[in-house]
Computed example of a mutant assay.
Amino acid sequence: MENFNLLYKGQEYLLFIAFIMMVAGLIKEHSLFAGAYAYIQKVFKSKRVIVALMSAFTGILPVSGRVTISAGMLDTLAPPKGSKGREKFGIIDYLSTHHYYVWSPLEKTILIPMAAFSVTYGAIVYSLLPLLIVSLGLVFTYIVFFVKEDDIELNTQKTHFKVSNVLRNVVPFLFAIILALKPVGGLDPWLVFGGLLFYYMVLTMTWDYKKLLGYVDFRLIAWVAIIIIMANFARDPTNAVKAYLEGSAFDISTVQGFVTISAIAFASAFAFGSSSRFAAITTILSLVYGVEYFVWFFALDYAGYLISPMHKCMAIGKMYFGTPWKRYFNALGSWILLLLGAGAVTLIV
């Protein structure tokens, strides 16, 4: 029975993805956000600024599954499937929704060490500032230097900004996000965006279920379902791994001990693909070996988490935008090197 539970645990996320895809499809096909985009472009004169603002907004949302919301929003700006520029949006989606773990006071990656070390939020963020700087720097660099204006598609021709259009077309989307916010409504995202989908169906008079299903990438749905199942089974023995790490007798003052425990930490975070698990591992190791190693272990475990095969966010962007694995590994490889470099510097200074 327990193994059976692991098969369906968390699968409601698939409904969430499907609803977001349908919502994004309706928004793009009917140009529902065109007026707002036209106004922003008139103010900032750059399509890349719109992408930067949107990725920044979706990246800081304290919503479960924000990578899916971000993907849906960015899809309204991305060129059609098959276009070369489209694959860059997978990287933007991933980078903009994952710096959150380094600074958000709502994330377990921040809350767990705060509680364990009995320190303030400001103290934790200050210690992680090197990791935050390189993370935000990478997002900015990618959008400015790797994304071109021609890679972004805005259907804003002959579109004028009207408050009534924004109230009718854009505000409901923002309201749905508010309802799903952890500190506000905290409602299940699949339920909230299911309701939003119904609203946009009424607004656009779209009742053809075949058309709606045409917006859904079922290969992505199937792949995410497999990843969720794999992750459920992989995370099941977490307590045993925690106990092993906590009772480890490795002497971190020696090169061999330092390398060994660092490798175990990275491998554990890589295997679990869970932010809460990597936060727990980081905190335990810091308590065992000293808080002076906190930033190093955080960077190490964070890196393992980012590229974990149990982490569904990469698969979502890869299949949503057709982003090749090579492009992901190039971007994430650079991020990991920056994180480890910043973490290593804190050991020296």
Rank of each mutant, 00 (worst) to 15 (best):
L131R: 06
D188W: 12
F89E: 01
N165Y: 07
V171C: 08
T58A: 11
L128P: 01
K81N: 13
S104H: 02
R168D: 06
V192R: 03
G72V: 02
K84Q: 12
L61W: 10
D151M: 06
G72H: 05
P113W: 04
K182H: 13
G65S: 07
Y126S: 14
Y101G: 08
F161T: 12
L129M: 14
K108I: 04
H99I: 13
S70W: 01
T76A: 07
L131N: 06
F146E: 13
L106H: 12
L111M: 13
P183S: 10
S70I: 03
K162D: 13
K162G: 12
D151E: 03
A115T: 13
G185E: 04
G85Y: 01
V192T: 07
F117T: 00
A123W: 07
T141C: 12
L95Q: 10
M73N: 00
L136V: 13
T68C: 06
L187G: 08
H98E: 04
E107Q: 12
V63L: 10
A123F: 09
A180F: 05
Y100L: 15
K88Q: 06
L138D: 08
I92R: 05
V67F: 09
P183H: 06
D150Y: 03
I177Q: 08
L138G: 00
S104D: 10
P130G: 02
L131P: 03
I133T: 12
L61R: 08
E107D: 15
Y126W: 13
K81D: 13
L167I: 15
L132R: 01
I110A: 03
G90I: 01
M114Q: 15
V139D: 14
A115E: 15
L167N: 12
V144C: 08
I112Q: 03
P80I: 10
G186C: 02
H98N: 15
G85Q: 04
K81W: 09
P130N: 07
S96M: 02
T68N: 07
P130E: 06
L95E: 10
L187K: 09
L138R: 10
R168M: 12
P113H: 01
T120Q: 02
I133A: 08
P113G: 01
F140Q: 09
Q157F: 11
T109R: 09
L138E: 14
V171Q: 05
I143D: 09
L136Q: 11
L111A: 11
L128V: 03
K81R: 12
P105T: 05
F140G: 02
V166F: 15
V171W: 06
F89K: 04
G186H: 05
V63Q: 02
G194P: 03
L131V: 06
P79H: 07
L128K: 07
R168W: 09
T68Y: 10
L179P: 01
D151K: 02
